[in-house]
Nucleic acid binder design. Structure first.
Lengths: 149, 149
DNA sequence: AACCAGTATGTTATGTTATTACATTCGTCA
DNA sequence: TGACGAATGTAATAACATAACATACTGGTT
């Protein structure tokens, strides 16, 4: 089931630029390209299904590639979907303040970057002496297009 | 593997009060009690392992109980752990503005409730015409106790 | 009581997501 | 060359979640 692969060919320019210049492994490149050609997040197994054509055979190859891309800040995991999406704010120094809207109708996500959010979460953590290393902010609901349609 | 069951017997009073008065099914009661006796979130299968002693046999029994408790607002799912924790802010009218800190060392979580956070997320969603139905805010890092220890 | 419809629960099987463990290859540097 | 560590390949399995169907309990109606 490839779902909606290639339906949204628009490329996230910032991540694309990063990727052209990077020297990651072949599998990371492949995973990146597939995510870039998708208009919504994909699960590791959806990626694998597509990439069997390019010789990939096992989930671990995909998970390792995703780990690398996440480490490099090129990909985000959407926890509530167990799925992965390109980062659309790669120019940002950090990913603090990153958030996602997730439409339960169409499955599309949008990444938001808001410095006030980053600061607020930082303050809240600080209040209880917590040292944050990563944040997950996900809003489930209905996107504008699906509300109107 | 029961992990840390019963190590933290302190009960979240607000949720406890709600539970004493509710008329849910037996399985929901059991799941609630086990979560109440745990000092950290538990996965569905950890709950099942404990509850086999009370006659539960299948994951679905636990998942259904959890779904009910979540619907009632007594339990939260921690997405990034695939685990479940009692709500410690049951008195709050809504769960907008709820957030969790998750210590990667000790596995404990703390629930935070902050109205400014709820408002900010509402504004961010609004900006892109998104109608939010539920929010997930999770901070991974190191808690104060583990930082000092 | 007998019946029915609707809801909740039990049980088996299966689907989906993620990792462990170990083998192999590849690059680098003495 | 050979020794080392890092990256990659492969198989097996663990961990998380749901589908599909059976059974039992509920309250209302005749």
């Amino acid at each position: 089931m490839l779902y909606h692969y290639y339906r949204g060919a628009s490329m996230q320019q910032t991540a694309r630029k990063e990727m052209d210049e990077r020297k990651g492994g072949r599998n990371s490149q492949l995973v990146f390209e597939v995510l870039a050609g998708s208009d919504r997040p994909m699960t590791a197994y959806q990626l694998l299904a597509v990439l069997r054509g390019q010789g990939l055979k096992a989930p671990l190859q995909v998970y390792r590639a995703l780990d690398q891309l996440i480490d490099e800040g090129l990909v985000h995991k959407i926890e509530s979907l167990s799925a992965f999406a390109l980062c659309t704010h790669c120019e940002a120094a950090s990913h603090e303040g990153a958030a996602f809207t997730i439409c339960v109708k169409c499955g599309r996500t949008e990444e938001i970057h808001d410095t006030a959010l980053g600061r607020l979460l930082g303050r809240l953590a600080c209040k209880q002496g917590f040292r944050t290393t990563s944040t997950t902010v996900e809003l489930s609901g209905v996107c504008e297009a699906c509300s109107n349609g």
